[in-house]
C-alpha cells in the first residue's frame, strides 16, 4: 500500500512534466498543424543556457528565466527562418526538416559541450514529505506540480479569455476566414511556436534534475512519452494533454516499480498503439478523424 502511494505520487510529479511537454506539442499543433519532431532538441538548447547562467550567477531563478527567454526566441527564429520555408504541398516535409534540425542541434551541442552528463541540481530538496509515515512527494515534486499548474492555467486563460487567445484559436482552426477578418495568421503561427518551445524548455528544465544530468539527448525519452500522452489526450486538446500526461507518468512509475524498468517503454508503446488503433483522434478530442 505504502509503495503504491509512493509510486502514485512520484508518477504524478513526473507526469506533470510530461503533461507540460505534451501541452507544448499541443500548442504548436494547434497553431501550425504540425507535430514538431524537433521539440526535444529545441527544448534542450535553452536548458544548456540555463545551466550556463546558473553556474555563472549561482541563481536557479535567473537560469529559469533565461531558459524561458531562450526557448521563446528559439521557437520564433525556427518558425520564421526555417519552418516557413518548408514546402507545404507535402505533409512529410515538415517532419523531415524537423529530423534534420534534431541532428544539427544535438550534434552541435555534443560538439560544443562534449558528451558528458552535466549534473544539475534542483532548487528544492527532493526528500519526500511524509504524511502519516507514508512518503509522498518531495518539495521539488510539489514545485514541479505548482509550476506546471500555473503555466497551464496561464495558457488556458490566454487562449480562452483574451482577444489574443481568440485570434490564436481562430487562426489555427480557420486560417482563411481569420485572414479575411483581419487576423494576422502568420504572426499567430509564429506566436504558437514561441509559446510552445518556451513551454517545452520549461518542462525539460524541470525534468533534468531528476535524471543523470544534462546531455544533448536528455529530453529524447520525454518527447516520446509526451508524444504518446498528447496522442492519447488528443493533439488538439490541452485538457487531454494534462490528463494523459499525468496518466502516462503514473503508468511509467507503476510499471517500473512493480515490473521492471525495461517494461516501461514497451508499456508506453502498447498504450500508444492501442489508442491509435481504437481512437486515433485521442480520448479527449472533440473533432472526428484527423487528416494532418
Amino acid at each position: 500500500m505504502e509503495r503504491l502511494v509512493f509510486l502514485l505520487s512520484t508518477g504524478l510529479a513526473r507526469g506533470a512534466v510530461l503533461a507540460l511537454f505534451a501541452l507544448s506539442l499541443v500548442i504548436v499543433y494547434r497553431a501550425a498543424r504540425v507535430v514538431n519532431f524537433a521539440q526535444a532538441a529545441l527544448a534542450v538548447v535553452p536548458v544548456y543556457v540555463a545551466f550556463a547562467i546558473t553556474s555563472a550567477t549561482g541563481s536557479y531563478w535567473l537560469g529559469l528565466a533565461a531558459a524561458l527567454a531562450t526557448g521563446a526566441l528559439l521557437g520564433t527564429v525556427v518558425e520564421r527562418r526555417l519552418m516557413r520555408l518548408v514546402p507545404q504541398d507535402n505533409p512529410l516535409a515538415g517532419i523531415i526538416v524537423a529530423i534534420g534540425l534534431v541532428m544539427v542541434l544535438q550534434a552541435g551541442l555534443a560538439i560544443a559541450f562534449g558528451p558528458d552528463h552535466r549534473p544539475v541540481h534542483a532548487p528544492f530538496p527532493q526528500r519526500p514529505l511524509e504524511v502519516g509515515g507514508v512518503g509522498l512527494m518531495s518539495p521539488y515534486d510539489l514545485f514541479v506540480l505548482v509550476v506546471a499548474a500555473v503555466v497551464m492555467g496561464g495558457l488556458a486563460l490566454l487562449f480562452n479569455r483574451t482577444s489574443l487567445g481568440l485570434q490564436l484559436r481562430a487562426a489555427a482552426f480557420a486560417p482563411e476566414t481569420s485572414r479575411l477578418l483581419g487576423v494576422r495568421v502568420p504572426r499567430m503561427v509564429t506566436l504558437g511556436w514561441t509559446l510552445s518551445i518556451a513551454t517545452a524548455a520549461l518542462a525539460a528544465l524541470l525534468l533534468v534534475p531528476t535524471g543523470l544530468g544534462l546531455d544533448p539527448h536528455a529530453a529524447d525519452v520525454l518527447f516520446v512519452n509526451a508524444f504518446a500522452a498528447a496522442v492519447v489526450g488528443g493533439l488538439d486538446s490541452p485538457a487531454g494533454a494534462l490528463v494523459a500526461g499525468l496518466s502516462v507518468g503514473v503508468l511509467v512509475a507503476l510499471v517500473t516499480g512493480y515490473a521492471s524498468a525495461a517494461a516501461a517503454p514497451p508499456a508506453v508503446l502498447a498504450l500508444l498503439t492501442v489508442v491509435l488503433l481504437v481512437r486515433p483522434q485521442g480520448l479527449f478530442a472533440a473533432r472526428e478523424a484527423r487528416t494532418a
Binding site: 512518503g135 524498468a261 517503454p265
Partner: peptide, 20 residues
C-alpha cells in the same frame, strides 16, 4: 532486486521500492 535501463535516467521508483 531492482533493475534500471540506461535509457531511462530516473531511478526514483526503484530506490523507493528498496527503501520500503
Amino acid at each position: 532486486s531492482q533493475t534500471y535501463s540506461t535509457a531511462d535516467q530516473d531511478v526514483t521508483a526503484q530506490i523507493g521500492a528498496m527503501k520500503e
